[in-house]
């Protein structure tokens, strides 16, 4: 009898709960980087300006915000020059929303592959996050250039030591986007109506984070509500890092770390549990 035989894999009607299967993921790490490479290669194929678009997108958005919110709505940006004020918020927000948008469409966008071959599905959302992180890095170079320019022309602009925490803050927004994206991808795969609602919610959500205004103009009684959004502390801390007298709130950073970890955990669990099953209903 085969009682002593060591089976290496098993297929059952239900995936186990809380089973990340890290070994499987590591097996497919080459695929992860190949997906990132594919996305980078194809995103600027047959465009005239090519990779310059990476710079143009945040610059144009910032310009639009500058015209609408500073020139027309006259929202104060404190001592910080308006362009410089909007730029980090725009970059971080764009990063977050693109990561979220990409990951939440995992199943629809890749159904043609998922129907034909197995690999840990988590590879796909991870590759999307990495791809956008690559773009983010390029955009940060642009930001640093603009920042240096203002640092020498405006004496009010000085960095603080908090600058060292900025990569960590970006990681928080990536984890937030990934966790939320995983949850949403599983739910929208089943209920497509939600996709439309979510697009709308995401647009509103931008105004629930201090992307286009400083948190200081928010009335005191609503402030806590804003801090519950992990992106608030990401953006506010980044501003504090680059514009010295700004205050950093470590307790809110801790709060956002805890909340994004919980969201990621829920997302991973749900995704791993449902990743194969979902394909039957798409």
């Amino acid at each position: 009898m085969d009682k002593n035989t060591e089976w290496e894999w098993e297929i059952k009607p239900e995936e186990r709960w809380f089973h990340l299967n890290l070994k499987d993921l590591i097996q497919y790490k080459d695929l992860l980087f190949r997906f990132v490479r594919r996305d980078i290669l194809i995103s600027y194929q047959q465009t005239i300006l090519g990779p310059i678009w990476v710079f143009l997108q945040p610059l144009l958005t910032t310009l639009v915000y500058f015209v609408i919110f500073t020139k027309i709505a006259k929202i104060p940006t404190g001592k910080i020059p308006a362009i410089l004020f909007y730029l980090p918020g725009t970059i971080i927000w764009t990063y977050f929303s693109e990561c979220l948008n990409g990951t939440m469409n995992t199943f629809f966008a890749n159904a043609y592959i998922f129907r034909k071959v197995y690999f840990p599905r988590l590879i796909t959302p991870l590759s999307i996050i990495l791809f956008h992180s690559f773009r983010l890095c390029i955009q940060l170079v642009l930001f640093v250039l603009v920042y240096l320019f203002f640092m020498y022309s405006h004496h009010d602009v000085t960095p603080s030591w908090w600058i060292l925490i900025v990569p960590f803050m970006i990681l928080i927004s990536a984890v937030f986007a990934l966790g939320l994206g995983l949850i949403v991808s599983v739910i929208t795969a089943k209920y497509r109506d939600l996709d439309n609602i979510l697009q709308f919610v995401l647009r509103l959500f931008m105004f629930a984070a201090p992307v286009v205004y400083p948190l200081s103009i928010v009335p005191e009684k609503y402030k806590l509500l804003f801090w519950l959004n992990p992106l608030t502390s990401v953006i506010e801390t980044s501003r504090a890092a680059f514009f010295a007298p700004h205050i950093v709130y470590p307790e809110y950073i801790l709060l956002s770390v805890i909340s994004v970890v919980v969201i990621l955990f829920v997302g991973l669990t749900l995704f791993r549990k449902r990743e194969i099953e979902v394909m039957d209903v798409i």
Binding site: E6, W7, W9, I11, K12, P13, E14, E15, R115, D280
Partner: peptide
């Protein structure tokens, strides 16, 4: 099912 693209409703498969 053997390729792990879809899950069986009942039963199980083991292999090495």
């Amino acid at each position: 099912i053997i390729s792990r693209i879809t899950l069986p409703t009942t039963g199980h498969i083991v292999g090495k």
